[in-house]
Amino acid sequence: MTTQTPVDIDFFGDVKKDANESNILPFTPSQIIYYGVPGCGKSNKIREQLKDVPEKNKVRVVFHPEYTNAEFIGQILPKVNGHVTYEFTPGPFTQIIKRAYLNPNEQFYLVIEEINRGNAAAIFGDTFQLLDRLKAGETDSLGNDPANASVNTFTEGWSQYFVQNDDVNAYIRKATKLDDGSYQERNDGEPIEEIKIKEIHFNANTAIRLPPNLSILATMNTSDQNVFTLDNAFQRRFDMELVRNEFDLTQPAVNAQYNAEIDDTGIKWGQFWGWINAKITATLKGLSSTEDKRLGVWFVSNVGGIIDDKVFAEKVLKFLWDDVFKFKRPQVFAEGIDTLEKLINSFEKPSEGKERFDVFKDKANLVAFVASPTL
């Protein structure tokens, strides 16, 4: 563990470097789900937010339909080293919570991609209770054996409730005590009987809580809400933040994405994006999923300022055919295009006298929109 600058700290309480400096506020943990249409930049928002955070201070996991609580928290698995033993193998949740406990002066992040593509309630299991945090002015001295209850006082940012998990508890206590009184993360050997981090006495009887220096950031595609629905009880424990599906042309990378040409068509991605999203809204008007069907800014990415015709056809056109306009195809696509194969072939290899975007029934409207995007 990196040696920290000595400070006077009451574990996650007020911090002073010396008597002449004002107090530094304790960590305020975040629990945020960033949501929006596919390709709007949810993952990128988190990546930018954490770009200066060391790798050891963040753990990233992707939820999916087969992902389980045992994988997320940890499980007993066989290990072969001359002979077979059965040991607790920590999951990403337990790995990051241990680092947060042992390094109280640093901020840690658990990043969950596609939180609604797995059964989040089942994956979190009883640790779902830990998502409720103590607010300013609240304290809790429960959750420990009588000997510890009088000395362990949990304050703002800690989990309001607690869970008992002997395996996670023991894994956290597997550490090496350094000369300065701090602890080095270690996974082998026996757990230390008790870890004392300032005023917190953590022993075999101490329940598990999320510490204030551990934040949880997640992403959710609104178009995938039918995969596993996040119930209101789960969502209530997170702040929800919409990642707006728009081009911020002040950012060089976003500007380049807007101006990327769709192969040799002379039409920029940003122009097509604006036209097709307006068409989606108008064509599907009244349907509950209309907004979710729109294309995100980064639905496809440019390479060297160009979006390849095959990439556009196989990703964008396929999505429009299979998902967006599934029940509106005759209203959108040109006469004679009655299969996905014809749609892709007509775009990639237009017949003599035809152009790529002739695959759309109202290509003239697209041309007019490109000439005057305010239409």
Rank of each mutant, 00 (worst) to 15 (best):
I76R: 10
L77W: 04
L77Q: 13
P78D: 02
V80I: 15
V80F: 14
V80K: 15
N81M: 12
H83C: 10
V84P: 02
V84F: 06
T85C: 00
Y86A: 00
E87P: 03
E87M: 08
F88D: 03
T89V: 09
P90V: 07
P90L: 03
T94W: 13
T94H: 09
Q95I: 11
I97A: 04
I97P: 00
I97W: 07
I97K: 06
K98D: 08
Y101E: 07
L102T: 07
N103S: 09
E106D: 15
E106C: 11
E106F: 11
Q107V: 03
Y109W: 08
Y109H: 10
L110G: 00
V111M: 05
I112C: 01
E114F: 01
I115N: 00
G118M: 00
G118W: 01
A121S: 10
A121K: 07
I123P: 02
I123M: 04
D126F: 00
D126L: 01
F128M: 08
Q129V: 01
Q129P: 04
L131P: 11
R133P: 00
L134P: 11
K135G: 10
G137C: 07
E138P: 01
T139Q: 10
D140C: 14
D140V: 12
S141H: 08
L142N: 13
G143R: 02
N144F: 13
D145L: 07
N148A: 07
N148H: 11
S150R: 13
T153K: 13
F154D: 08
T155F: 01
Y161K: 15
Y161H: 15
Y161Q: 11
Y161D: 09
F162W: 12
V163I: 15
Q164V: 13
A170E: 12
R173C: 02
K174C: 04
A175E: 03
A175V: 10
T176M: 11
K177A: 12
L178F: 10
L178M: 14
D179M: 08
D179A: 11
D180C: 06
S182A: 07
E185A: 15
N187G: 08
N187Q: 12
D188M: 03
D188R: 06
D188T: 13
